[in-house]
Design a protein around this nucleic acid. Structure first.
Lengths: 335, 335
DNA sequence: TTGTAAGCGTTATCAA
DNA sequence: TTGATAACGCTTACAA
């Protein structure tokens, strides 16, 4: 089972471990006859090389780490799917770490990974309160790191993101075109460039349409879902917006529930758009207009970028790849 | 960064590597003065021990593997979430592998993992056509393995599952109680005990209610989503069931779409229940009656069981933990 | 074409 | 309380 190793193969065949190792590696130095014998015995004994020993010797782990806020989130699980598929093609292994939006956890994971456990890191940053980036800088100085979706623009590194500003702008424009005058914004990821761009899209679209900004219409989300629900209900009750743009998927459902409870009809009384990768969006009641990010592609692009770094050992330090999201108009913003 | 090791610390401090190692491990044999010096230098140089070397020496990887059909599936991503949380508490690392329901892939992953890369495996089996289990038997003979949700009952091993038979039975009973007479079953996982139990629940509930079984009402799902959609449309068009039980989440949406296209009203013309962990079920149009499995708990229970095996080095070879699913009645089965 | 031996970074045994 | 050394399983100069 697990405990058959090169030494035993060598002993059995009256060869040196070196020869066995080379035969297994299909080295040109070894006679085909020897290769045949070694391979035969290896197969018959179900020999599998110990990757840990080989990693130690080769100073690489054939493993990459993926650090995300949550696995159980449509966007991230799709991204992981994309990452895993690329890693599979290269025979790499994928370690998963969840931060639950906790910076401390993110820092701890990141630093622990810099000593050989992985050859590279793919990270979508947590949006915890403490705007701590030192660990990200250290990480990218020490091993290849690719940032995806949730990034800090001011950190040097390869980044795979989407056109957040444009998407957000376009969404607000769509709300305005559909007749909305009082557009609320559910703010999240505020300390990240990702969130900042989404906010800017909202603000600029308002301005370009001559709609004055009113901070009462901005709800800042919290890590607590109940609290978010209360905040949204409060927004709907006291400020009565006629349109909502939610900057993250997690806040779309609470909007629906709050509207139900307050007996507001979507889209008649209020129109809703959300950044979201929910595949049930078309089946909701009413179906939800979404800004949908190419989550799978973000993952596979990020992984590909990482492998490109492995291969070339050179890359533009600030290469950024921007993928396009799509605004899918559905009933929740119907006129 | 990555390349500071015990040897360098030892050199710097004029100590042996043994002493440094012991100091870092807080061994009782080391004077507190020495410990202080070592720890201080280690911290100042940002030293992190190389886990690969330590793994090789200790013959354990502090890593577990999770093998699932898909990451981007609500059930599995929740289960992974549960697994990750437990692993985190024990300072274990989690490797993810997706089989995409491909037995070949599952076999390859499993066998590759038996040579030291991981200390244990958590697996939810793929339901590929070839009913190949040899690799699972080999795996559990060689390292600790815990099976969850999708299992073969005839393989020895620790299993975490749900009450599939009862859930399925109860769902059909609910359909019958709601007035359905022609109940279709969307069959999946047929080669696994999991699927078999769900089928049996369906069959027995029909029998107990004096409803003759009609094989035209059973649709066997395929890996191809378009084909599944066509099969369901065909079922609805030609056999006109008045109730559907879907044995997997993936087939619930196609049912909704097919009903829309055929202008069938849910629940008036046809009632639908699905095994599902979709959190949008209550917001669908109409809201979907579901059998919801405790996905997160299945994951955390499975991980806990694995760690129990690590700890005790002993366990009942066929210990099975059965968690309860819940039938949540919603509009899709309203009378 | 094959063998010897060193070394990857740790840890544990044994001796001092 | 500390040090010398071997060993984990594999790969690769260097030698034969």
């Amino acid at each position: 089972m697990g405990n058959i190793n090169i030494k035993k193969l060598a002993l059995e065949l009256n060869l040196s471990t070196a020869t066995v190792s080379r035969a297994l590696g299909d080295s040109y130095q070894i006679s085909s006859e020897t290769k045949r014998k070694v391979l035969e015995l290896a197969k018959s004994l179900n020999y599998e090389p110990n990757p840990i020993a080989s990693n130690l010797r080769n100073q690489k782990s054939k493993t990459i780490a993926v650090i995300v806020p949550e696995v159980a989130n449509h966007f991230f699980s799709l991204a992981i799917n994309g990452i895993e598929e690329i890693a599979r093609k290269r025979d790499y292994h994928v370690l998963i770490y969840q931060t639950h939006e906790n910076s401390e956890a993110e820092i701890a994971f990141t630093l622990k990974l810099l000593s050989g456990r992985v050859d590279g890191i793919l990270i979508s940053t947590s949006s915890g309160e403490t705007n701590n980036k030192q660990h990200l800088i250290e990480a990218s100085q020490s091993i290849p790191v690719v940032f995806f979706d949730r990034v800090y623009e001011d950190i040097e590194g390869v980044k795979i993101i989407t056109d957040d500003y444009e998407s957000s702008y376009q969404a607000v424009q769509h709300l305005i075109d559909s007749g909305c005058k009082k557009i609320a914004y559910l703010l999240a990821l505020h300390n990240l460039s990702t969130g900042e761009k989404r906010s800017n899209g909202y603000l600029t679209a308002l301005k370009d349409n001559g709609i004055p900004f009113n901070e009462d219409f901005v709800v800042t989300s919290t890590p607590n879902q109940d609290e978010n629900y209360a905040l949204i209900k409060n927004l709907l009750t006291y400020y009565k917006p006629d349109g909502i743009l939610s900057s993250i998927e997690e806040l779309a459902f609470p909007c629906y529930y709050a509207c139900r409870e307050l007996d507001l009809n979507i889209p008649r009384d209020i129109k809703i758009i959300s950044f979201s990768n929910l595949d049930c969006a078309p089946l909701l009641n009413p179906s939800l207009t979404t800004i949908t990010q190419p989550a799978f592609e973000i993952g596979s692009e990020a992984a590909s970028a990482l492998f490109k770094i492995f291969d070339k050992k050179y890359f533009e330090p600030n290469e950024t790849r921007i993928l396009k999201s799509v605004l899918i108009k559905r009933e929740s913003t119907a006129v």
